[in-house]
Amino acid sequence: MDHAAVLALYDRDMRQGARPDGTGARIERDASVVRQVGSAHGWNGIVWSDLDETTADTVIAEQVGYFADLGRQFEWKLYGHDLPVDLGKRLRAAGFTPEPEETLMVAEAADLTLDVEPPEGVRLLPVTDPTAVDLVADVHRRAFGTDSTRLRAQLLAQLSDDRDQVVAVLALAGDEPVSAARMELVPGTRFAGLWGGGTVPGWRGRGVYRALVAHRAKVAASRGYRYVQVDASRQSRPILARLGFEPLTTTTPYVSA
Rank of each mutant, 00 (worst) to 15 (best):
L124E: 15
G121I: 12
H41Y: 02
A94K: 02
S179I: 00
V64K: 13
E117G: 12
G188D: 04
V166D: 00
P98Y: 01
T54V: 13
V139C: 06
A181C: 00
G17F: 07
A56C: 04
S39P: 11
A56E: 05
R210A: 15
A171S: 00
D52K: 07
L91W: 02
Q73G: 14
M183I: 15
L240E: 06
A217G: 06
D161Y: 04
V127L: 12
G198L: 02
Q165N: 14
V167S: 12
Y10C: 08
R19E: 02
R190K: 12
A217D: 04
T23H: 10
Q235K: 14
V230L: 13
V34R: 13
L7E: 09
Q158G: 09
S49Q: 01
T113F: 06
F74P: 10
A157K: 13
R150A: 15
Y10T: 08
A217E: 01
G22T: 07
R182N: 03
T55K: 00
L7Q: 01
V136E: 09
L70Y: 10
M183Y: 02
W43T: 11
A68H: 10
V200Y: 02
R19M: 14
L70F: 02
T97H: 14
E176I: 08
M183H: 10
W43P: 12
D82C: 10
V178C: 06
T97F: 06
D138V: 01
G202P: 08
R216P: 14
A214T: 00
A56M: 13
R29G: 14
D2P: 05
V59E: 12
E75T: 10
D57G: 01
S256Y: 00
G45V: 04
P100Q: 04
V167I: 14
G121A: 08
V133W: 10
S32Y: 15
T149Y: 06
D82W: 04
A168V: 10
L104T: 10
A18R: 06
Q229R: 04
R123W: 02
A56F: 07
A220V: 04
G71L: 05
L243A: 13
S256C: 05
V133K: 14
R15E: 11
D11K: 02
R26K: 13
R204G: 03
P187N: 03
S39W: 06
E176Y: 09
E99K: 00
D86C: 12
S49E: 08
Q63T: 13
I27N: 03
K77V: 13
S236C: 05
A61V: 03
A232N: 09
D52M: 11
A180C: 03
L125P: 05
V255G: 10
V85T: 15
A132H: 03
Y66E: 09
R163V: 10
A211M: 09
A220N: 01
A56N: 05
F245K: 02
F67Q: 11
L83E: 15
G244P: 04
D13R: 07
Y79L: 09
A214N: 03
R90I: 15
G224R: 01
G202R: 03
F96S: 10
A107I: 12
F191R: 01
D164I: 10
R216I: 07
R242Y: 09
I46H: 05
R19A: 14
V85L: 11
L87Q: 10
A18F: 12
A173Y: 08
G24E: 06
T146N: 06
R152Q: 14
F144V: 01
R15P: 15
G38E: 02
H215Y: 15
M1K: 12
L9K: 09
V85I: 01
F67L: 13
